Computed example of a mutant assay.
Amino acid sequence: MNSRMKRGALYCVLIIALMMLASCGKSAGNNSNQGANSNQAVSDEAASEETTEAAAEETTSEETTESEESQATRIYKDADGKEVEIPANPQRIVVLEYLGEALAVGAKPIGTAGYLIDAFAGKVDGIQDVGDVPVNLEKITAMNPDLIVSFDGGSDREDRPQLEKVAPFVSIAWNGTLYEHLRAMGDIVGKKDQAEQWIKDYEAKAQSAKEQISSVVPAGSTAVALGIFDKSFYAYEDRNIGHTLYHALGFTPTPKIKEMMEDGEASGAKEISLEVLPEYAKADYLFVMLYGDEKTVNQKYEDLKKMKMWTNIPAVKAGHVYVVGPEWFYYDALTLEWELDETVKMLTAKPE
């Protein structure tokens, strides 16, 4: 073999060797990258598992906290003086009284008394009728309430022992004021702040109402609310419509009404005879509430309007007599809020 051929052969061997080395280097690089990628995948999977576990632990912790909160209890001393263990955050409440207060603080009950269902038509969707006094104990039991709220009872709440076997039972003082009722309800259902906010909003609304009627109702004007029933007459103090007149709108009670308010014996209203009615009705503004058989009470009122004792009353002479229906007899947060609006409308419009 001549020297040229030898050099060509050597070049071929050298090229082949270089190609083989390059191939090995590339393979090693690939193997290194694959190893790194594999390690990264394992690391990512581990991190993902840790995140999932942390999320699961957090969810479990939240659920445990919510469960503990729903099961937490506290002791509440009610209007009957009984210390009752009640849920700290009740969810399934039955209110046998004070439905207006429960709704005002945002605690919609699952059941309430039948007459309240009728009184709050349009606001009671989803709330079951559990009867009046006595209530439907079997139905309430089936509803599985976690709290029952009513008025302080005596003989009017003889079913309390049976109701206490169904769920914690607490009472609110019947003779309390609107704000006392509202604050008690807020405390019982864990919504004190909502109760205070409602009071704040109501007082602002009352102030606005005073300003609206100031142009037509002279300062210091007296007002009286009378009730005409089938067989009786009633004068009202500062509950029911009286709260709207004296506390919200600032009317002055007449001497007879003031006596009722000070002695505290009337519990909101006092039955009076026809003979003494003019003494109680002697006011600048008169609100007449008709309650009972419609035909009977309307006729009774028509007969009264023909009597001289009636025509001599200052409010009658001035044309400041306003006739209202039985819905004005309720004494609760929502009714009084509605009543405030209605009273302003009547006073700023033409009287009867």
Rank of each mutant, 00 (worst) to 15 (best):
Ser67Arg: 14
Ser67Met: 12
Ser67Gly: 14
Ser67Tyr: 14
Glu68Trp: 02
Glu68Ile: 03
Glu68Leu: 09
Glu69Val: 10
Glu69Lys: 13
Glu69Tyr: 07
Ser70Glu: 13
Gln71Ile: 03
Gln71Phe: 03
Ala72Met: 03
Ala72Asn: 06
Ala72Gln: 07
Ala72Val: 01
Thr73Lys: 03
Thr73Leu: 01
Thr73Gly: 03
Thr73Ala: 02
Arg74Glu: 09
Arg74Pro: 09
Arg74Asp: 07
Ile75Glu: 13
Ile75Thr: 14
Ile75Asp: 13
Ile75His: 08
Ile75Tyr: 11
Tyr76Val: 07
Tyr76Asn: 05
Lys77Trp: 07
Lys77Arg: 12
Lys77Ile: 15
Lys77Thr: 15
Lys77Leu: 12
Asp78Gln: 07
Asp78Met: 07
Asp78Leu: 07
Asp78Gly: 05
Ala79Glu: 09
Ala79Arg: 08
Ala79Ile: 10
Asp80Val: 09
Asp80Lys: 08
Asp80Met: 10
Asp80Ala: 13
Asp80Ile: 06
Gly81Ile: 03
Gly81Arg: 03
Gly81Asp: 05
Lys82Ile: 09
Lys82Trp: 02
Lys82Ser: 10
Glu83Phe: 10
Glu83Lys: 09
Glu83Gln: 11
Val84Trp: 02
Val84Asp: 05
Val84Ala: 07
Glu85Asn: 12
Glu85Thr: 15
Glu85Trp: 08
Glu85Arg: 08
Glu85Leu: 12
Ile86His: 01
Ile86Gln: 02
Ile86Tyr: 01
Ile86Leu: 04
Ala88Asn: 08
Ala88Lys: 06
Ala88Ser: 14
Asn89Leu: 05
Asn89Cys: 05
Asn89Ala: 11
Pro90Glu: 08
Pro90Leu: 05
Pro90Ala: 08
Gln91Gly: 13
Gln91His: 14
Gln91Ser: 15
Gln91Lys: 15
Gln91Glu: 15
Arg92Asp: 14
Arg92Gly: 10
Ile93Ala: 00
Ile93Gly: 00
Val94His: 00
Val94Thr: 07
Val94Tyr: 00
Val95Cys: 03
Val95Thr: 09
Leu96Ser: 07
Glu97Lys: 15
Glu97Ser: 15
Leu99Trp: 00
Leu99Thr: 06
Leu99His: 02
Gly100Ser: 14
Gly100His: 10
Gly100Pro: 11
Gly100Met: 11
Gly100Leu: 10
Gly100Asn: 14
Glu101Trp: 06
Glu101Thr: 12
Glu101Leu: 11
Glu101Val: 12
Ala102Ser: 15
Ala102Glu: 04
Ala102Met: 08
Ala102Gly: 09
Leu103Asp: 05
Leu103Phe: 04
Ala104Met: 04
Ala104Ser: 11
Ala104Gly: 06
Ala104Thr: 04
Val105Asp: 01
Gly106Trp: 11
Gly106Lys: 14
Ala107Arg: 08
Ala107Lys: 10
Ala107Phe: 08
Lys108Cys: 08
Lys108Ser: 13
Pro109Arg: 10
Pro109Ala: 14
Ile110Gln: 06
Ile110Lys: 05
Ile110Gly: 04
Ile110Trp: 02
